[in-house]
Simulated scan of single mutants.
Amino acid sequence: MSNQQPPRRFTPMSQFATDYPVLLIDSDAPLRELHNCVSERLNAALKYLHLMACTSLPDYAENDINTVTNIARILVQDVSDVFRVIEPRGFETLKSQ
């Protein structure tokens, strides 16, 4: 007898500000849509970090740098969470071919 639980349709995203997951990823969403979500966030994070890299840091207070870093962390964490959902499905597709 197996005690394995069936895959959950909604996978919680990582959260650090709440005790209960409030943002969920639809694991059954089409791979193209999940990929679009990842792509949008990753490209936004890269553009944002590029902008910050080209900015003179002495112009900003320490609090501003912490805010910039936290925004980039949240975007990259979202990307990681969606990849966690995409990867098993993508690898299953490759196995079946």
Rank of each mutant, 00 (worst) to 15 (best):
S56R: 11
L57C: 03
L46C: 06
E62M: 09
R41Y: 02
E40M: 06
D64R: 14
E62G: 07
P58K: 08
L31R: 04
P30G: 03
L34P: 06
L34Y: 04
S27L: 01
Y60G: 01
N43Q: 05
N63E: 15
A29G: 10
A45F: 01
L46N: 13
L49W: 00
S27T: 13
A29H: 04
P58W: 07
M52L: 15
V38Y: 03
H50P: 00
R41C: 00
L46G: 01
A29M: 10
P30L: 01
H35Q: 12
A53N: 11
N43M: 03
P30A: 09
N66R: 15
C54R: 13
I65E: 04
C54N: 15
S39A: 02
M52N: 12
A45T: 04
D59Y: 07
N66T: 07
T55Q: 10
N63M: 12
Y60R: 11
N36Q: 08
A53M: 11
D28A: 15
Y48N: 12
K47E: 09
C37P: 00
H35S: 05
K47N: 11
V38D: 01
T55A: 15
C37N: 12
E33C: 02
E62T: 09
P30E: 01
L34G: 05
C37D: 12
L34I: 05
A29I: 04
S39L: 04
A45L: 02
T55S: 15
A44D: 05
L51K: 10
A53Q: 11
S56P: 04
Y48D: 08
S56H: 13
A61F: 03
L34C: 07
D59W: 11
M52A: 14
Y48K: 07
A44K: 02
H35P: 00
S56T: 10
P58T: 06
I25G: 05
S56N: 14
Y60K: 07
S39F: 00
Y48M: 14
L57N: 00
N36W: 00
A53P: 02
L51S: 10
N63D: 14
S56F: 09
H35E: 03
R32Q: 13
R32M: 03
E40F: 03
L51M: 12
L46K: 08
P30W: 05
H50G: 00
K47D: 14
A53F: 01
N43G: 00
N63Q: 15
M52H: 08
I65D: 00
Y60Q: 08
C54K: 15
